[in-house]
Computed example of a mutant assay.
Amino acid sequence: MKLIGLAGWSGAGKTTLLTRLIPCLAARGIGVSTLKHAHHRFDVDTPGKDSWLHREAGARQVLVASEHRWALMTENRGAPEPGLRFLLSRLSPVDLVIVEGFKRDSHPKVEVFRVANGKPWIHPEDPHVAAVASDLPPPGALPWSPLDDTESVADLVQRFAVDLAAWQG
């Protein structure tokens, strides 16, 4: 498996870009999984459903399955938030994992930047940013792709993804 991240401030367009990259990479024959960091308390379950009642009753894990998909929910119950390497180890093998968020971790990243967002660049402070996808060229010498050129961003993703087994994060 290979690993690359999309890092940027909220509102930069990471999710929009990612939803364009997945089918683009799939058309190139690359199987993609994603790992998304949530910055707030989130829930994938619905209050009142059986699985929600199981968790509320104290179950540490609840696995919900149907003919279309399955999902495993694990309650931290006071344990620290799991790290990126641990979470990656829970994914089934695939050609490429794209991480959205985890911008403070040490994996290689493509910075997603939008001028109108009014936030500072990340790459001057993060040596793990390998390239930039933005609506204007970044300061410095990093490889760059226009944010709306999905094929070009996909080229950067493929170029800078690292083998997960070799990653020292």
Rank of each mutant, 00 (worst) to 15 (best):
M1G: 13
L3N: 05
I4E: 06
I4G: 09
G5Y: 01
L6S: 12
A7I: 00
W9I: 04
W9D: 11
S10H: 09
A12D: 05
G13V: 03
G13K: 04
K14E: 08
K14L: 04
T16W: 03
T19R: 15
T19E: 13
L21V: 06
I22G: 05
L25E: 05
A26K: 10
A26F: 00
I30T: 08
G31D: 14
G31C: 03
V32P: 11
V32C: 11
T34V: 04
L35A: 11
A38G: 03
H39Y: 12
R41H: 15
F42P: 03
D43E: 14
V44K: 08
D45K: 03
P47I: 05
D50G: 06
S51D: 02
S51P: 07
S51I: 08
L53W: 10
H54K: 02
H54D: 04
R55L: 04
A57T: 12
A57E: 05
G58Y: 09
V62H: 11
L63N: 09
V64P: 02
V64A: 14
S66C: 09
E67M: 00
H68Y: 13
W70Q: 09
W70A: 12
A71Q: 06
A71M: 14
L72G: 12
M73A: 13
T74M: 11
N76G: 08
A79C: 06
E81R: 06
E81K: 00
E81A: 08
P82C: 08
P82E: 06
G83F: 02
G83Y: 04
L84H: 07
L84C: 02
F86H: 06
L87Y: 01
S89M: 10
R90Y: 02
L91V: 04
P93Y: 13
V94F: 01
V94N: 11
L96H: 13
E100P: 10
S106I: 02
S106A: 15
S106P: 14
P108V: 03
V112M: 12
N117Y: 00
P120W: 08
W121G: 12
W121L: 14
P124T: 07
P124R: 09
E125K: 10
D126K: 01
D126C: 03
D135Q: 06
L136G: 15
L136Y: 14
P138L: 01
L142D: 07
D149L: 02
T150S: 05
E151F: 04
V153Y: 10
Q158T: 09
F160C: 03
F160Y: 13
V162C: 09
D163T: 08
D163R: 14
L164W: 05
L164A: 14
A166F: 13
Q168E: 14
G169V: 04
